[in-house]
Simulated assay, not measured.
Amino acid sequence: MIDTDNFYKSLGALRQIGPDEQLMIAEGLRVACEVHQWTLFLEQVMNTEDRLQALFNSARKVKQVIPLSTRSGWLAIRCPSVVPEDETAVSLAKLRQVVEELGISIDSSYG
């Protein structure tokens, strides 16, 4: 289980993020969090062979993350939280590790 308020606050959100909203954590990088999962949207990364390879390589290094593409053709990564205990800190660590593996820096001015 993920505490969505703490998740977003740890990423620099200045206000409560609603269930239909996403938080921009860097240029072209948005995250949506629910109690049972987070999804990272890579808006400026198209499905080129190099980017797909980087996405799958980063997903292999972080347990439980799933690479996918959205209906609009953008790449994304999802990480489920399947335990009833609070996994907010673990979820944040996984998100940061994925972003780091992709070679993207999170700029707190976007929160």
Rank of each mutant, 00 (worst) to 15 (best):
S72E: 11
I25D: 05
A76I: 07
R96A: 02
Y110G: 04
K63S: 11
T70L: 05
A13I: 10
M1K: 09
G73R: 01
E100T: 09
E34P: 04
H36D: 03
E87T: 12
L95R: 00
A93G: 15
Q64W: 10
V90K: 08
V83P: 01
F41K: 13
Q97C: 12
I66E: 04
L40F: 07
E43D: 03
Q44I: 08
T4Y: 06
A26K: 12
A59W: 01
A54E: 06
A93T: 15
P67F: 00
G18H: 12
S69V: 06
C33H: 00
P80C: 09
I104M: 10
V62G: 08
F7G: 11
R71I: 11
L14N: 08
D3F: 10
S109E: 09
L40I: 10
P84C: 00
L14M: 05
L52F: 07
P19C: 08
Q16P: 05
M24L: 15
V45Y: 14
M24H: 11
N57D: 14
P84M: 00
Y110Q: 02
N6S: 13
G12L: 02
V62S: 04
K94M: 06
R30W: 13
D86C: 07
L102F: 03
Q53W: 04
E101R: 12
L42A: 12
L102T: 05
I17K: 10
A93Y: 14
N6L: 13
I66H: 07
